[in-house]
Simulated scan of single mutants.
Amino acid sequence: MPIRIPDQLPARDILVREGVSVMDEHTAMRQDIRPMQIGLLNLMPNKTRTETQLARLLGVSPLQVELTLVRIGAHRAKNTSEEHLISFYQTWEEVADRKFDGFIITGAPIELLPFHEVTYWDELTRILDWTKTNAHSSFFICWGAMAAAWHFHKVPKYTLDKKAFGVFRHRNNAPASTYLAGFSDDFAIPVSRWTEVRSSDIAAVPDLELLMESDQTGPCLVSEKTCNRLYMFNHIEYDSTSLKEEYDRDVAAGTSIEVPHEYYPENDPGRKPLNRWRSHAHLLFGNWLNQAYQTTPYDLNEIGKDGG
């Protein structure tokens, strides 16, 4: 089934050109099925790009998915026009009475700040608590995953001596997990962060299961049966050129940055980078949607009544 997004959302044209099946609102209304209700709290500065990345992955499911874009109400975005936010986003307060089959919280470029110094930390903690009763399954990404792991379990984040930056090999710790169905024994995933969580801290929380990790960059994906949570500490949703653009930006600004690890052929920034994670990104999001679909109540109002 296609993904249902607003007809005028800029991501729509990009997805159509890529062959992703996108359903217009009129057609969706005529289908006699309940679409999966997925919310996306987008904390990334380039909201249009993140919308496209995640809609691309949600749009390959055989299920009909209706995506609702959500933003922090008290935070003013610097890199996205107010017109775009008004046209396509709702504040969390505006959706707080709704129930969602799945809710995604992205990363944000604020990872070096202590959590309590983040300007919207209080609102974010209210949203995280709200997911316990209003989202059947939650998917936290990068800084969003670190924030959720700290809020729910006091799993700390640690500052790295240098940025973990590039494409790193990861191993499959749990081949029997429904989230990793079809995954290889090892695979490549993009990493871009100045902080980390550690396996020992995750192991100290009985409710958490470490599904993916790397010898070089540590934990990658953690699951939790409580409220059907997934914590992705890296950027499996990245485009082919996301790391290149981060590298080029830092080089242009005179920031000290190493060439992204195992990203360019022969480590040459003059060559076109190869995407070696796309298939696993689609697989992970497809597995997440499928698991949510199989376990969510048909009646959205029933979500959260049994703790998940």
Rank of each mutant, 00 (worst) to 15 (best):
K162Q: 15
Y179C: 00
E83P: 00
T178Y: 06
L40G: 06
Y247S: 09
I104K: 07
Q90M: 11
S81T: 14
V197Q: 04
I127L: 13
T48Q: 15
M29E: 14
V95R: 00
Y158V: 10
E66I: 01
V60H: 14
E237R: 08
T50P: 03
D122R: 12
I14S: 11
E245K: 12
E111I: 06
L112Q: 13
V70F: 04
P190G: 11
T91L: 08
F100T: 13
R4C: 14
V222L: 01
D299Q: 11
T50M: 15
L112P: 00
E82R: 12
T133V: 04
A96L: 04
Q216Y: 03
I105Y: 07
H84P: 00
P109W: 09
S21Y: 06
P190T: 11
P45K: 12
Q291S: 14
K47P: 11
D7R: 05
E111Y: 05
L180V: 04
W130P: 07
V95E: 03
Q8M: 06
M232H: 10
E196W: 01
M232D: 06
E111Q: 12
G19L: 12
T195E: 08
A164E: 13
D161Q: 12
L40C: 08
I5Q: 02
S137L: 03
E258I: 05
Y264G: 04
D122H: 12
P260H: 04
I38R: 04
G19Q: 13
F88P: 01
R34L: 03
R34P: 08
E82D: 14
E196A: 13
P175F: 10
K47N: 10
W121C: 10
A164N: 10
G39Y: 05
H153T: 03
S184R: 15
F168G: 05
W277Q: 02
P156C: 08
L112W: 00
K305M: 11
Q31Y: 03
V197T: 13
A174L: 08
W288C: 10
L230G: 03
W288G: 02
F139D: 01
G254C: 09
Q53Y: 01
G218T: 02
A253C: 04
A292Q: 05
T241L: 14
S256W: 00
T106N: 05
A181C: 04
I110A: 15
H136N: 14
F140D: 02
P10E: 08
C220T: 13
E18P: 08
N134D: 05
E196K: 03
L67F: 03
T133S: 13
P156L: 07
A135C: 14
P273Y: 08
C142S: 05
D248T: 12
F152E: 09
R276H: 04
Q90H: 14
L211H: 01
A148L: 07
C227V: 06
R49Q: 13
S87L: 10
P265F: 08
F165A: 04
G307F: 04
V16Y: 02
M212C: 13
D215K: 12
S61A: 15
L54I: 15
Y298M: 07
T131I: 06
I189Q: 07
N234V: 09
F152I: 04
K154P: 00
D101I: 11
Y89A: 07
W92I: 03
E266Q: 12
M146R: 03
D207V: 11
I14P: 01
L41Y: 02
S256D: 11
L69N: 01
D32K: 06
G254R: 07
D248C: 06
G304S: 08
F152C: 02
T50A: 11
E111K: 02
